[in-house]
Amino acid sequence: MSFREKIHWVALFGLIVAFGWYFLAYPWTIANTQQGVWTAVGMLIPVTIIFLVPMIAGTVFFAIRTPKEANLKEDEREKTIHLRGTHMAYYPLVLGVWANIFFLINGIGFGYSVNILIATLVVSEVIRVGSQLYFYRKGA
């Protein structure tokens, strides 16, 4: 398993744990109030920490274990995997933004809108990282 693939696994784990906690713990009953919006903003701070800490720790750990691989530039296969994953993530991103526009036009509250956008980003990222891991395993 290459250095970048390991980092992708850490990123996927971090995303699922951090945003899994966010969406499970978020107080949905007050989502559409000013307090709900500020709660979302406040919760994004621990979410960022939960996501970043394993990313930094994982990167340092794997870089120490395999320093040669950590210093290698992306080769053509890795660039292809990178591009294909980003391309796949584009679709849920567009879908989520369009859904948000639709809901906003139809009078959805600001709090729900913020959470739809966060969910859109999370789903897109999970698809990006997940598909890149799939291509690392199965071939690009």
């Binding site: 290698l72 053509e76 071939g139």
Partner: peptide
């Protein structure tokens, strides 16, 4: 060649089609 060990493994196993240059 200027690629990672994993890329050589993927080419060998027919999981990746290399560029003409590689």
């Amino acid at each position: 060649v200027g690629v990672t060990r994993q890329t050589i493994a993927a080419i060998e196993q027919g999981r990746y089609s290399p560029s003409l240059e590689v």
